[in-house]
Amino acid sequence: MDELESGLRDLSAIRSMMERASKFLSLSGLSGVSAGLVALAGAWTANRAIQQSGAHIVLPGEHGGGEAWLEGFLIADAVSVLVIALACSTFFSVRMAKKKGHPLWGPTTTYMLAALMIPLAAGGAFCGLLLFHALYGLIPAVMLVFYGLALLNAGNFTFSEVRYLGMIDILLGLTAGFQPALGLILWAGGFGILHIVYGILLYAKYEK
């Protein structure tokens, strides 16, 4: 056999083995699309509730006004979005693993989830602190920044494109921090639109 060809073949075999051994490759693009749709629905619900209660976006040190039920409603909304989005993305990734014949639960799954969940849990706790201090206006910013950091980290253990999504989310989060009035819109952009766009791109690249 021609040395050029066998050399190229060996290098690509090495590369694909290294990837399979270190990366979680069953992350489905449809996971992103479904999570994005759920996030958009959640943002729409939150926006309606805020308008109905007559509250305005709260900057640090201000009193937000609005009715007492709003805080509880928004927390319930956010938690539902998280749970439903996680359920959908798990469903599509499990489906993809089955289709590609990857093991459902391997060490790479653990690496990826640990890299994702630790910054995410820290972000969740930090949002709890903001709630405690009634700094509602900063919550979308903090969610975006911590989620971006989580993706940046998890991108080392799955498709590396995920890292760019993380960086964009961090930038959106910082913008939301400067402009809390745009918080919900930027949140819908980062968690909704970007997930959908990214999901479609990943799907086209790896699952077609």
Partner: peptide, 11 residues
């Protein structure tokens, strides 16, 4: 053997 070494080099 090449595949074994590839896997071990990242794990």
């Amino acid at each position: 053997r090449l595949a074994i070494m590839s896997v071990l080099s990242v794990r």
